[in-house]
Write a protein that binds this DNA or RNA. Structure first.
Lengths: 221, 221
DNA sequence: ATTAATATTTAGCTTTGTCTAAAATAAAAG
DNA sequence: CTTTTATTTTAGACAAAGCTAAATATTAAT
């Protein structure tokens, strides 16, 4: 069975690879884990010995099939717990990340199977991220960054790619959540900010930084 | 914040003291924790430095007020999670202990407050053990060991003082659970076993060992 | 009241996961 | 194509939590 630390490293490596990198660099892992690069190197060696990652020294790491299974399983647990916290216990979407970080490390197949059933086998977590199934399969939906989306097209918010409570609270205060219908009404090239419009609310200006965390899909009624 | 190990030691010390001892002996703690006595000594020193236990070398430990608060809080979390697992997820009472041992170490005041509400502020866990309130107060109910109870008096099972899945499964198979109405119909002095009768079932013989894990209270309709 | 038995503590070592500083390698720049 | 810069790895230490073996207290027994 994996230690808490091993699980967190695997999850981090998975996230880096998911974001499009061919290999996860030691430094990127260390930054994400808030540890020294040397610590990351040590852990990489251990995970490589356990056949969970492939490691070509100085050239980053990749996940083996087994490593991928473990990583998606942790993410599956994290996201299911987030659904539980929001849907059943009434947490806000901005309050669940830290607690789910702990809950994701509970070891019990049966618990997750039953939790999944209890929640109605949800496909997405409260931030719109897909929940891997028990076999580690993730359904990827077509979505685009709001930041880059054409003007004057009605879209639906499909996910938000940032877990910081501050950002999530900010979006909540603007009435923006997963499922919101919005439309870009204007784009300001000088700072890449955009103006959006939602039903029953005044136009809102979003900075590029914020618009780069929001994913949308075309709205089909 | 306490480490996992510190929490487990505190819980163990609490349990030993709860069972009537004036002080918890190093050895008793080590046995309960499945560690060497030397390890227990080390941890006792650490907990004493943190003012969570009082330690007179060679004469066992007691809990300070703060140590007691911490211990009851862990037990509170353990028992609330057990209720959740049984009531909401459909676990059997014999399947929850191990998972709750993990869940009890999740750190989040808010989580426990909301879980408690979600479960309807239960007073007892699935084994009939009282759930301490948020201030660490435990409601102790009058109950007696079935083993020592008079014959031919109708009683209600109030709790079962053993968490081993084997025993709990055994009781389940006999139809004995918290709330069951039973009556001792005969007592066999030579081995202290007893014969009990429950509505709609044949008489059952319970060994002294089993009858010593079952607590009952007089049945008042 | 000694001695024997039991319980507890101390001493020294191990593993896990972390760190800093130094050495080695790869990539970028001139 | 060499030098500078950035990244990665190695070496050596440290804290937490555990262990065994040896030393020390306490309790029980003669």
């Amino acid at each position: 069975m994996l230690s808490l630390s091993e699980e967190n490293y695997l999850k981090t490596i998975y996230k880096i690879l998911e974001s499009g990198q061919a290999a996860a660099q030691t430094n990127a892992i260390a930054v994400e884990m808030n540890t020294a690069a040397a610590s990351a190197t040590d852990m990489i060696k251990k995970l490589a010995e356990k056949q969970l990652v492939g490691h070509k020294p100085y050239h980053g790491v990749t996940l083996t099939i087994e490593g991928q299974m473990q990583a998606t399983n942790i993410i599956r647990k994290h996201r299911l717990w987030e659904v539980f916290l929001v849907e059943k216990l009434g947490f806000g979407w901005d309050e669940v990340h830290e607690v789910a970080e702990q809950l994701e490390h509970i070891h019990s197949e049966k618990l997750i199977r039953k939790l999944d059933q209890y929640l109605g086998m949800p496909k997405y977590d409260p931030h719109g991220d897909p929940i891997p199934d028990a076999n580690g399969r993730v359904t990827i939906i077509a979505q685009d960054l709001l930041l880059h989306f054409p003007i004057n097209v009605k879209v639906e918010v499909s996910s938000v790619s940032n877990q910081s409570p501050e950002l999530l609270q900010y979006l909540k205060s603007k009435g923006i959540k997963v499922g919101s219908k919005i439309e870009i009404t204007e784009r300001f090239p000088f700072d890449q900010s955009i103006e959006i419009k939602m039903k029953n609310s005044d136009p809102i200006i979003l900075t590029a930084q914020v618009a780069a965390t929001i994913y949308v899909k075309p709205y089909v009624k």
